[in-house]
C-alpha cells in the first residue's frame, strides 16, 4: 500500500505546487481584485469593460461573475463579497437596495429588448411568434423565475400566444447555447444575445408586443474597495463605457 499511497500524495502535492505557481496575473503583485456581479446577458460586454478598465487603471484586477440576475441577487443577500452589481431588471436590484445592500443609488446604464433567436439557417422555418405554438417545433424559454423568462412570457402573453415550450432554461446562456447547437428551433432571448452570437439568427418582435428591459448598476455595501467600485461604475456610465456596451447591441438608456 505504501507505494501507491505515496505516489498519489506526491502527484497531488505536485499539482498543488503547480497551481500555486500559476496565479492569474503574475506581473501585478498586490493587484486589487474588483468583483463585479453582472447579469448573464452582460457577460461578454462586461469582460471587455473590465479589460478596458484594467488597461486604464494598472493594479486593478476586474473579475466578472456572470449568472442570472436573480441568482446573483440571492448570493449578494447571502453576503457574497461582491463590489458591484449589474442586474438585467430593476426588480432584482430593488430587492438588493431594500435589503440595504447597495451603497449607491442604482443607475440605469443600458436598455435591452427581446428577440426571437433561431439556429443559423433557421432549420425550423420559424417566421414569428406564432410558431411558438407549434408543438412540432422545439421551443425554449428562460425559467419563469429569471428576467429573460419573465420578459419572454410577457411577450408571448402580449401577442396572445399559447406557447408549446420544451424547456425552461435556468439562464439565457444555457438557452442560447442550445439554440446555437440547433437543438432548439427557436427561443426568446435578448437582442444582445443574438447580436453577440454568430451561430444564431434573430427575428425581430413587433414593438407593440415587445418588452424593454432596463439594466441598473450599483456599488454594494459589501464592497471591499468602494472607491474603486464607484470608479468602475463611473467608467461603465462614461462615453467610452457606453460605446463598448452599444457594440454588444445594448441600447443607451
Amino acid at each position: 500500500m505504501h507505494g501507491p499511497t505515496r505516489s498519489a500524495i506526491a502527484v497531488l502535492g505536485a499539482l498543488l505546487v503547480t497551481a500555486a505557481a500559476c496565479t492569474d496575473d503574475p506581473g501585478a503583485p498586490g493587484s486589487q481584485p474588483l468583483l463585479v456581479f453582472a447579469a448573464g446577458s452582460l457577460s461578454a460586454a462586461f469582460e471587455e469593460l473590465g479589460a478596458a478598465y484594467e488597461a486604464a487603471h494598472p493594479g486593478v484586477d476586474v473579475q466578472v461573475s456572470s449568472a442570472a440576475s436573480s441568482f446573483l441577487r440571492e448570493q449578494i443577500l447571502e453576503g457574497a463579497p461582491a463590489d458591484v452589481y449589474a442586474s438585467a431588471d430593476p426588480e432584482n436590484m430593488e430587492q438588493v437596495t431594500e435589503a440595504g445592500m447597495a451603497r449607491t443609488d442604482p443607475v440605469v446604464f443600458v436598455r435591452n429588448v427581446m428577440e426571437i433567436a433561431v439556429p443559423a439557417g433557421n432549420p425550423g422555418r420559424v417566421t414569428g411568434l406564432a410558431d411558438f405554438a407549434d408543438p412540432n417545433l422545439l421551443i425554449g424559454l428562460c425559467a419563469p423565475q429569471v428576467p429573460c423568462g419573465i420578459f419572454g412570457r410577457a411577450v408571448l402573453e402580449a401577442a396572445g400566444i399559447e406557447a408549446s415550450i420544451d424547456t425552461s432554461e435556468p439562464n439565457v446562456l444555457f438557452l442560447i447555447t442550445k439554440i446555437e447547437a440547433g437543438e432548439l428551433d427557436a427561443g426568446l432571448v435578448y437582442a444582445t444575445d443574438v447580436a453577440s452570437s454568430e451561430l444564431v439568427e434573430g427575428i425581430a418582435i413587433p414593438p407593440e408586443w415587445n418588452v424593454e428591459a432596463e439594466y441598473p448598476i450599483a456599488v454594494l455595501t459589501g464592497a471591499a474597495h468602494p472607491d474603486e467600485a464607484a470608479a468602475f461604475v463611473a467608467f461603465v456610465l462614461s462615453d467610452s463605457g457606453r460605446s463598448i456596451l452599444t457594440g454588444y447591441g445594448f441600447l443607451a438608456p
Binding site: A68, E74, G140, A143, Q145, V146, T167, S168, E169, K178
Partner: peptide, 21 residues
Amino acid sequence: AGSLQGRTQTMPLAVFVALEQ
C-alpha cells in the same frame, strides 16, 4: 436535457430554479 416541469425537471433542477424566486 433542459428543464421542463413534469417532463425533465428533476429535484435538483427544481431546487435550483426555486432558489431564484
